[in-house]
Protein backbone atom coordinates (compact mmCIF):
# COMPACT_ATOMS: atom_id res chain seq x y z
CA UNK A 1 0.00 0.00 0.00
CA UNK A 2 1.23 3.46 -0.80
CA UNK A 3 0.78 6.65 1.07
CA UNK A 4 1.10 10.21 -0.08
CA UNK A 5 4.14 12.05 1.11
CA UNK A 6 3.82 13.15 4.74
CA UNK A 7 0.90 10.84 5.27
CA UNK A 8 1.23 8.24 7.99
CA UNK A 9 -0.80 5.07 8.34
CA UNK A 10 -3.86 5.51 10.52
CA UNK A 11 -3.82 3.38 13.63
CA UNK A 12 -6.69 2.66 15.96
CA UNK A 13 -5.54 3.17 19.54
CA UNK A 14 -7.25 4.13 22.79
CA UNK A 15 -7.54 7.78 23.74
CA UNK A 16 -5.43 7.08 26.79
CA UNK A 17 -2.45 6.25 24.54
CA UNK A 18 -2.68 9.49 22.55
CA UNK A 19 0.55 11.43 23.24
CA UNK A 20 0.21 14.89 24.75
CA UNK A 21 -0.07 17.58 22.11
CA UNK A 22 -1.34 15.22 19.38
CA UNK A 23 -4.64 15.29 17.53
CA UNK A 24 -6.88 12.37 16.58
CA UNK A 25 -10.46 11.63 15.60
CA UNK A 26 -12.85 9.43 17.54
CA UNK A 27 -13.40 6.01 16.01
CA UNK A 28 -15.80 4.39 18.46
CA UNK A 29 -16.88 4.35 22.07
CA UNK A 30 -16.61 1.04 23.90
CA UNK A 31 -18.23 2.14 27.16
CA UNK A 32 -21.79 1.18 28.00
CA UNK A 33 -24.61 2.56 30.11
CA UNK A 34 -24.26 5.82 32.00
CA UNK A 35 -20.61 6.31 31.07
CA UNK A 36 -21.39 5.96 27.37
CA UNK A 37 -24.24 8.42 27.76
CA UNK A 38 -21.90 10.94 29.46
CA UNK A 39 -19.36 10.60 26.68
CA UNK A 40 -22.00 11.10 24.00
CA UNK A 41 -23.27 14.16 25.86
CA UNK A 42 -19.78 15.63 25.70
CA UNK A 43 -19.93 15.32 21.92
CA UNK A 44 -17.66 12.29 21.62
CA UNK A 45 -19.19 10.82 18.47
CA UNK A 46 -17.28 9.10 15.64
CA UNK A 47 -15.37 11.72 13.70
CA UNK A 48 -14.98 14.21 16.58
CA UNK A 49 -11.52 15.71 16.78
CA UNK A 50 -9.76 15.37 20.14
CA UNK A 51 -6.42 16.66 21.32
CA UNK A 52 -4.47 15.41 24.33
CA UNK A 53 -3.55 18.47 26.39
CA UNK A 54 -1.88 17.52 29.63
CA UNK A 55 -1.38 14.89 32.31
CA UNK A 56 -2.12 15.44 35.99
CA UNK A 57 1.02 15.76 38.15
CA UNK A 58 -0.15 12.59 39.90
CA UNK A 59 0.01 10.69 36.58
CA UNK A 60 -3.71 10.34 35.99
CA UNK A 61 -6.19 11.68 34.74
CA UNK A 62 -5.35 13.23 31.37
CA UNK A 63 -7.04 16.32 29.98
CA UNK A 64 -8.28 16.49 26.40
CA UNK A 65 -9.69 19.26 24.25
CA UNK A 66 -13.05 18.14 22.95
CA UNK A 67 -15.18 20.58 20.94
CA UNK A 68 -13.59 23.61 22.59
CA UNK A 69 -13.96 22.32 26.16
CA UNK A 70 -11.22 20.80 28.31
CA UNK A 71 -12.32 17.47 29.76
CA UNK A 72 -10.30 15.16 31.99
CA UNK A 73 -10.73 11.38 31.82
CA UNK A 74 -9.24 8.79 34.13
CA UNK A 75 -7.28 5.98 32.50
CA UNK A 76 -10.25 3.60 32.83
CA UNK A 77 -12.56 5.87 30.84
CA UNK A 78 -10.02 6.98 28.25
CA UNK A 79 -9.23 3.35 27.44
CA UNK A 80 -12.86 2.84 26.44
CA UNK A 81 -12.61 5.46 23.71
CA UNK A 82 -10.98 4.30 20.46
CA UNK A 83 -9.47 6.86 18.13
CA UNK A 84 -7.98 7.04 14.63
CA UNK A 85 -4.49 8.35 15.11
CA UNK A 86 -2.11 9.23 12.30
CA UNK A 87 1.00 8.61 14.34
CA UNK A 88 4.53 8.86 13.19
Amino acid sequence: MEYKQGDCPTKIISLHDLPVGKLATVSSIQAAGLTRRRMLDLGLVPGTRVKALRISPAGDPKAYRIRGAVIAFRKEEAQQILINYKGE
Binding site: V70, I71, A72, E77
Partner: peptide, 11 residues
Protein backbone atom coordinates in the same frame (compact mmCIF):
# COMPACT_ATOMS: atom_id res chain seq x y z
CA UNK B 1 -14.66 0.07 42.90
CA UNK B 2 -14.43 3.73 41.90
CA UNK B 3 -17.11 4.68 39.40
CA UNK B 4 -16.37 6.57 36.23
CA UNK B 5 -16.23 10.31 36.11
CA UNK B 6 -15.42 13.13 33.77
CA UNK B 7 -14.08 16.44 34.99
CA UNK B 8 -14.34 19.63 33.06
CA UNK B 9 -11.50 22.13 33.40
CA UNK B 10 -13.29 25.38 32.58
CA UNK B 11 -11.33 28.35 31.25
Amino acid sequence: VPSSFTLELPP
